[in-house]
Design a protein around this nucleic acid. Structure first.
Lengths: 151, 151
DNA sequence: ACTATATTGTTTGTATCACAAACTAATTTC
DNA sequence: GAAATTAGTTTGTGATACAAACAATATAGT
């Protein structure tokens, strides 16, 4: 019954809700901080993350990110202006584009990816190997429950 | 080695980094959705969350939220304009204010708090009682490691 | 006490982010 | 081939965040 306030909290007597909420803010702060070092917002990191294994249309990007299509225009515009991303004309539909990372974009993706990997891994130094496995299992169950709820 | 992209992911072969990142986005989405039902952003929810057990100065709010003091002015202004929050003059320092929730603010805090409690609890339906305990323990260790890293 | 310094909060100016409604151009459907 | 749908952009609005400059009050140093 406590805090969606991430800092200054008593780590004993944590409810499961608090535990999850606080960890989520912790992760988000890490993403934001790493992003800031590269002048990227969390949403830009997510955009680049998606482009690692896709070249989606604007519409598909909107669905992936859960944003309105009109928000994608600006998001991609800004990323394109910085040379991270480019629009390529769709071969099948002359109205549409596909968005893909540029060479510079890939460079950033790798750097940021490594830092995220590194820093979040560092957060789990207090865990034993079997606790890490447990964490993955539990997260998997939580994600599965959520995926089920959205159906 | 995968996604800061929360949706459409393979839940098997999840790394611990992915697991944590995806859970964090899941939680943030829930907070955002519940907030939206009450016309609150996540940052406003956090603000109200802090006010449940404090009447901080603007400066202290900035520290709690990790924001610049100039950002707090607007945040509190908007919450005040909506009647959720009020500034009271500090008895000890005529420059400063303390911020506290109004009656309306408390009402919202309770409603939102219950919904968060309810929905996040619902996400953990797939867990056994002992898995829940494990989750809390693991989260506690992760939070402790992070608290240690920021020192 | 008095000046110099520091602190608290606001203002101003800039940029990002997000949405909804209206719009254009291309594509499907019938 | 006209009507309806779809893909993206534009426009307008508001929230969020920062940094630098500012006013008012508080604290230190002498």
């Amino acid at each position: 019954m406590t805090s969606y306030d991430d800092s200054f909290n008593n780590l004993d007597d944590l409810s499961i809700v608090d535990a999850l909420v606080q960890v989520s803010f912790l992760i988000q702060n890490i993403l934001a901080k790493i992003g800031a070092e590269h002048d990227l917002s969390v949403i830009q990191i997510r955009l680049l993350g998606i482009l690692r294994d896709r070249e989606p249309s604007m519409q598909q990007l909107a669905r992936h990110l859960g944003l309105d299509k009109s928000s994608i225009t600006g998001l991609v515009d800004r990323a394109e202006r910085r040379g991270l991303v480019e629009r390529t004309v769709s071969s099948s539909d002359r109205r549409g584009f596909n968005v893909r990372a540029t060479a510079v974009g890939w460079q950033i993706i790798h750097e940021v990816g490594e830092q995220i990997e590194h820093q979040i891994t560092a957060m789990t130094v207090g865990l034993t190997e079997s606790e890490r496995t447990q964490t993955i299992v539990l997260a998997g169950k939580i994600l599965a429950a959520a995926a089920g709820a959205n159906r």
